[in-house]
Structure formats: C-alpha cells, structure tokens
C-alpha cells in the first residue's frame, strides 16, 4: 500500500515547522515518528497535501526534572520514555505504559507527543496522561504558548484541542513518586490495541483513564467521584461505564466493553492500593 502523493518539508526548528504548517494550510500535517499517521495514509484514510517532518527536532526529545513536575519533550520516543530513570522514579505508570505501546519496533519510532496529538481513543498513553492529570504545552504561530490540561484536550474521534497550526511541544506530568498505580490492558494477542484499558493513579485522590471506551480517551469520572465520596473499590468500579458509549467492533460489543471496564477498573484499583508506597 502506497500513500497518496504529498509535498514533503523537513523542519529544523519549531519556528520553521510552524511557518511550514502555515504555508501548507488546513491539509498540512505534522509527521513525527509516523506510526499513527503513515498507516492511515497507506490506507488512504488520510491524504494530507503536505507533511512537515519534525522528526529531527532533537531539542524536543528530553525528560527534565522541573520541581514538582517532570517535563517530557513531545518528540521523546516511547522507548526513551520507557527507559528514562526520571520517569521511572516519579511517574512509573508512564514508563510502564510507554513500554506497552505496540511492539519494540513501534516504540523505536513512535513519540509521546505524536500519540497524544493523534488522540486515538484506543491508544494507551492518553489514558495514562488523564490518570496522572498531565498538562500539554502548545505553541502557536508567532510563538504564543498555552497550556491545556489533559482532561480538556481530547474533544472527539481523532480530534483534539490543538488548532491546525499549533504544535504540541511538551507533556508536563505531576510527580507521583511512591503513589500506587496500575495499568490494565486487555487484548487477545500480543501487540494488539487494548480492547479496553484502564490506567489508575492513587495519590491522595485517584485518577482513572480509560482506553477504548468511547470516541476519545476518557476519564472515569463516575468512578473518581464515587471514590472521593467514600465508596468501596467494588462499589466505585461498578460505575466504570456509567454514561459512556463504548464502540462496537470485531473484538467486542459495547456491552462486553462495559463489562470489561467494570472488571478492569476494580482490578486496577486493587492493584493501585496494593502498590502504594505512600
């Protein structure tokens, strides 16, 4: 399978990438690792007129200690998030989840920013950023910056709060050193997308992100509220699919996904309680 023709531009800085995106108009797309975009282009589900390759902006590949948070450059590859000592110490769920994405080959190319900007409800990393209460740093043409909380970022199917000419530059994750956490990924075969996944972080309050339970990556707000109100794990987990409209596909019906969400949220909460060091 071969993508439709496009114009290829390679950016050497964020500023240049913003200019190129502006030149390309609405049909221009950023190319990072390409592991979400190129498969869509090969299937001709996406046919951008221009690709702006930002894959060589190495200054957007980093993990930094920023006090109460760690900052991760958007072009940090899954493999580098998986193996970074700062992430392992202060947000171990993120290192673990990065290591669950696809397979080693995918993790050598795919980036955390690409995964988040793609906004696929079946992706693992967005759910982890929701559970962690991460914030996304974005830059617009002219250099204006804004911060978007993960909870406000995912708007619709493959649709995010990013404007077409904006670039996601950094993922800011609160340190949850020693907090209990769990990631439950249910699939039938190695390397598959999760049929349903659950990310939970227990750090005083509990944050829960859901994979593949609707048209966007989701927070399990009904469960979070039940826990905050003093409900037991069992009782809170029973609300995992409340108000949600999970998708139907070859792997699972909506009813089965709702059932899985309740079971996996219970398991995640139990494991997070057991793994807490705080």
């Amino acid at each position: 399978m071969i993508p439709a023709p496009f114009e290829y531009r390679r950016a050497t800085s964020v500023e240049e990438a913003l200019r190129m995106l502006g030149d390309g108009g609405e049909d221009a797309k950023l190319l990072a690792g390409g592991h979400s975009l190129l498969p869509l282009m090969k299937l001709r589900l996406a046919a951008p007129s221009m690709l702006v390759d930002i894959g060589r902006l190495r200054d957007l590949s980093y993990v930094r200690d920023t006090g109460d948070t760690i900052a991760i450059g958007a072009l940090t590859r899954h493999r580098d998030v998986e193996t970074d000592p700062l992430v392992a110490e202060h947000a171990p769920i993120l290192a673990h989840v990065a290591g669950q994405v696809g397979d080693p080959q995918v993790r050598h190319r795919g980036t955390i920013g690409g995964s988040i900007a793609h906004g696929d409800p079946a992706s693992d990393l967005p759910a982890a950023t929701l559970a962690l209460g991460a914030t996304f740093e974005v830059v617009a043409p002219g250099g204006a910056k804004r911060s978007i909380p993960a909870a406000d970022f995912f708007r619709g199917f493959l649709e995010t709060a990013l404007a077409p000419a904006e670039i996601l530059t950094e993922i800011v994750v609160p340190k949850v050193t020693g907090a209990g956490w769990s990631f439950q990924k249910f699939n039938r075969r190695a390397q598959d997308w999760a049929i349903v996944g659950v990310a939970a972080v227990r750090n005083g309050s509990t944050g829960i992100g859901l994979v593949n339970m609707g048209s966007t990556p989701l927070r399990a707000t009904a469960v979070e509220e039940a826990l905050a109100g003093g409900a037991s794990v069992q009782e809170a987990a029973s609300h995992a699919a409340d108000g949600l409209d999970p998708p139907s596909d070859l792997n699972a019906s909506p009813e089965y996904r709702a059932h899985l969400a309740r079971v996996l949220v219970r398991r995640a909460l139990e494991e997070a309680a057991g793994s807490s060091r705080s």
Partner: peptide, 16 residues
Amino acid sequence: LVDGESVKSCTMLAAQ
C-alpha cells in the same frame, strides 16, 4: 535496523 535499532520499514518513509 535504522541507526542500529529495529524498525518496520513498511511504516517509514525513505525520506525519514
């Protein structure tokens, strides 16, 4: 292998 690491060459442009 690209720069010594495994990649799936069906999901990478020659340009990359």
